[in-house]
């Protein structure tokens, strides 16, 4: 197998909390030992609930934040500890799209200026070449040439996200970290943006890290999916495999709680008790013990490793072999729509 485009190993980001007057300093372990890889032209979906660390992980990979420990190997080179100057060429190759396109676009700049800015910073071409590139970008994301002199507030949410995508494409990146790119959009607009992202991937050979809490969107767009819970990846598999046969009890509960847009869908739902524990003081051993319907005392004693359970299907659970035959949701996901 060829080396992946991105190979993340043992990545950690610990944020210090307000330290108590006495006693040990405490940390929010937002990302706590993550391994993942993304191949060329591949989409890795990253799902999890709020506070699980998925956005922090995305920001680390785009190097908008500095990791506490671990490696981020991009095109064979560890970029985890590069300083700003050394990062400049890397930033061309890794770009980011944000959830709220309005907050991430400067309201005082025209669309043309927004799209030209990265080209200027990275010294790409002269004025007329840059202008041509900007017009190309507008066309690529489905905006009109006359949009170039308008300001962000003149656009709808979907169009603003198109501007955000065009800006991310300006420097011809290899990898785009998409952090909840369609979550703020209406359903009918979501589909337009998803189609656009997929078309751009086909045309430009892009790789995506697609971060989302929307399980349907992730299933549709991803080649592989990783599930995150309290700073750790708890399961990773091919998208089809993951949704057909979730292994980790958290993934199983998450998928079963996702309401299908079909009133005839018979899904056996696992309702988890309580909420996600505080990442400052996560449960010992497996972090999911406080909510897991299959929990046993030994789950709190050791941290389960993320290991292959089926070929290419990794999960972080000690009891997988025992619970495999006694699933709470046997066949829950075999939802067929009666036509």
């Amino acid at each position: 197998m060829t080396a992946p485009l991105l190979d993340v190993k043992g990545l950690k980001r610990h944020f210090p909390t307000e330290s108590p007057l006495f006693g040990a300093k405490r940390f929010v372990k937002a990302v706590d030992g993550v391994d993942l890889a993304i191949g060329k032209g591949e989409t890795l979906g990253l799902v999890g609930e709020s506070g699980c660390g998925k956005s922090t992980l995305g920001r680390l990979i785009a190097r908008l934040d500095e990791p506490t420990a671990g490696e981020i190997v991009f095109e064979g080179r560890d970029i985890a500890r590069l300083d700003d100057r050394a990062l400049l060429p890397v930033r061309q190759s890794i770009q980011m799209i944000f959830q709220n396109p309005f907050a991430s676009l400067n309201p005082r700049m025209t669309v043309g200026a927004i799209l030209e800015e990265p080209l200027i910073i990275h010294g790409k071409g002269d004025r007329s070449k840059r202008r041509r590139r900007v017009m190309d970008l507008l066309g690529q994301v489905g905006l009109r040439p006359d949009h170039v002199d308008r300001y962000p507030h003149e656009f709808s949410g979907g169009q603003r996200q198109r501007i955000g995508i065009a800006r991310a494409l300006a420097l011809e990146p290899d990898l785009i970290v998409c952090d909840e790119p369609v979550s703020a959009l209406d359903v009918s607009i979501q589909a337009q943006i998803i189609n656009l992202l997929q078309r751009l991937q086909r045309e430009l050979g892009l790789s995506y890290l697609f971060i989302s809490h929307d399980l349907s969107v992730v299933e549709h767009i991803s080649d592989r999916v990783a599930v995150m819970y309290l700073g750790r990846i708890v399961e990773e598999a091919d998208a089809v495999e993951m949704y057909r046969r979730p292994l980790h009890p958290y993934t199983e509960a998450l998928l079963s709680a996702h309401p299908e847009p079909d009133p005839l869908a018979v899904s056996r739902e696992i309702i988890l008790e309580g909420g996600v524990p505080s990442p400052v003081n996560p449960p010992a051993g497996c972090h999911f013990t406080t909510r897991c319907p299959y929990v046993q005392p030994r789950c709190s004693e050791t941290t389960p490793p993320l290991v292959d359970h089926h070929p290419g299907h990794k999960a972080r659970c000690l009891r997988l072999d025992e619970i495999e035959g006694n699933r709470l949701t046997e066949g829950a996901r075999t939802v067929e729509h009666k036509s």
Binding site: V187, H220, A239, Y243
Partner: peptide, 17 residues
């Protein structure tokens, strides 16, 4: 325009908008 199960299974296909 929502990726329903049937649509999701033909992954990476265009979603109707």
């Amino acid at each position: 325009s929502i990726p329903r199960p049937a649509v999701r299974r033909e992954r990476k296909g265009e979603i109707d908008t």
